[in-house]
Design a protein around this nucleic acid. Structure first.
Lengths: 356, 356
DNA sequence: ATGAAAGCGCTAACAA
DNA sequence: TTGTTAGCGCTTTCAT
């Protein structure tokens, strides 16, 4: 077995209690004692056993992130930022992929690593709000990106409906009149898709227009391949469209690729708008107009929510001390107009592309 | 406190020992007993405490992945696949970002979450082979992507030098004669960059050419922005180049964006080749020629290495039972020729783009 | 096939 | 300021 506190204590001629005090730098340790203990630790190569500590404290310092997928530029950007935020707070991040599968989401929702995890960030794609409500696991939960409902859990969201409205309104304002909603039907991302479709529809209504039902384009996934397939299908079926509002940037990039490959000019013939502001969109040619969620704010909000639910470090008011009701944090978004919808083709540098 | 095995035992009228047997489905439990215990567990909502189990077993089921960054298409694809591989083996994956910072890499190298982690997958960017060798932490380690040295640790690699040779030779074979090495100097990715530069140089030598030193293009990072800046600089400085071998796809996509924005035609004026085969490259216009590492094989190899170092599930020969020396697994790569170097512009579908 | 009991390494009440 | 001690919840040896 590895060196334990007892070994260190023996070597330094103190009790385990004192070693513990040194390790957790408690205020009242005599300088000389501390020095001796630290030397003993160094000599023996002591590493505190995290499992024992977790067991004793009832808290592991582990936090989980559940996302549909870890590849996919949006979720990987989210994971990267969240990982940093957790590191700053001394939490270790553990990652699980749900693939938007309701069954897998359900399983992860009540019990990632059983009680080994102090809190969970969850980005649902398969479960409805009602299904989320049925969760039994008492581990603090923060929902990411979903409109949600305050009765379910803390959540940090952008206003998907409003953002979709703006994106569509932008296309309408450039004179487009047949704007397809690419992703309006999808096997994954239920709530998100529902809200973005609603925004698309409302923008039409606000302009006194009623979009052709054939412009609600179904997709198999929210990835590039699905976007390419959708665009190809539109062309093959002869559906007239002068604008595409794609529910993710990945769909948009796939669609744009298919259009360009068939000789359709973007934005001259068809304008394209995406959603998420992933980095590829900035460097695509033409560069992609998109809805940019404020990811730093989202991550900050999420971490703050969780921090409030966690027991305080020293002087523990217990895990029951968080805000009484659930909290809803709304984060801003903005429409970034680039070349694919007729704007400038330059790279937009207003927000840092990667972590600072 | 949560329900413990003792509570379950009391309710089922058995001893904790029996509950443990049921939970770990040991062979010798009478059907009736098992049923009673399972009912008691269900009624009480029992969840085994992972911290206690880890402490007792001396094994947590936790495995760490250390990568430079989690956004970045290559590493997020790696993380996604590794996450699946771990899930299949019953391991939980925990992720840390090093940003290629040597200090941070060193710290993570000896001790992610102290003894709470059973093994570490490590993708070094800042540390040299020699520095890796100095590690003290006994936790099993698997290096990813580095050429490495068998004396350091198990590692799973592709032949970076050979791949770079092929990429460059491909450009030479299309008649290009001034091929810039974008990324030949970089503050991160030491070993990788060194090897890719060597392959680029050797391809020239093999063709009886000596590349102009001004074609070794330095970068600040391996991201798109750096690629765009590098390409812009080449144009500004009037360095003649008819081909770019970019050390990552991200660099290549950034460079291509900058070239196209300045009216330089790809591949007519300048051919571009990248490295990594990230998904964006397939959907770029023109689509990107690149070196495609066999990621599934790499991940499979890495997981297998670690599995061999871990104590066996039942009947524990202890952690000291792995292969005596360190293992080096070599994984294949192939050059995928697409539009950016004059090949076809179609999407290459030979390998699944995402997880199956 | 099951029970009794020890102990993994640490923290925190209680004492001194 | 430091020592003593109990115990977190589980697995496992020994006993039956």
């Amino acid at each position: 077995m590895a060196v334990s506190m007892r070994d260190v204590a023996a070597r330094a001629g103190v009790s385990p209690r004192t070693v513990s005090n040194v390790v957790n730098d408690a205020p009242y340790v005599a300088a000389g004692t501390r020095a001796r203990v630290e030397q003993a630790m160094a000599e023996l190569g002591f590493r505190p056993n995290a499992a024992a500590r977790s067991l004793r404290r009832g808290r592991s310092g582990l936090v989980a992130l559940v996302v549909p997928e870890l590849d996919s530029p949006y979720f990987s950007a989210l994971a990267a930022r969240l990982s940093e935020a957790c590191a700053e707070r001394g939490w270790t991040l553990l990652v699980e992929q749900s693939h938007g599968d309701p069954e897998r989401e359900r399983r992860l929702l009540d019990g990632v690593r059983d009680q080994q995890v102090d809190g969970v960030f969850f980005s649902p794609w398969g479960l409805s709000t009602d299904e989320l409500r049925e969760r039994r696991d008492p581990t603090p939960l923060v929902l990411l990106g979903e409109q949600g409902d305050v009765s379910v859990a803390d959540h940090v969201v952008i206003d998907n409906e409003a953002a979709a409205f703006e994106a569509t309104a932008h296309l309408l304002s450039t004179g487009r009149r047949r704007i397809a909603a690419v992703g309006a039907r999808s096997p994954v991302g239920r709530e998100t898709v529902r809200l973005r479709r609603a925004g698309w529809a409302r923008a039409h209504a606000a302009a006194g227009l009623a979009p052709d039902p054939s412009l609600e384009v179904p997709v198999d996934s929210l990835h590039r391949a699905a976007g390419a397939a959708a665009a190809a299908r539109l062309l093959d079926e002869g559906v007239q469209a002068d604008g595409l509002f794609c529910f993710t940037d990945e769909l948009a990039l796939g669609a744009m690729h298919a259009l360009l490959a068939r000789g359709v000019r973007v934005p001259a013939d068809v304008a394209v708008v995406g959603f998420d502001d992933i980095e590829d969109g900035r460097y695509a040619t033409p560069s992609l107009t998109t809805v940019s969620p404020d990811l730093p704010a989202l991550v900050r909000g999420a971490a703050a929510c969780l921090a409030d639910r966690l027991p305080v470090e020293r002087g523990r008011p217990g895990p029951e001390d968080g805000p009484a009701g659930h909290r809803a944090v709304h984060t801003p978004h903005r429409l970034v107009v680039r070349g694919s919808s007729g704007g400038t083709a330059a790279v937009d540098g207003a927000r840092p592309e990667r972590l600072p």
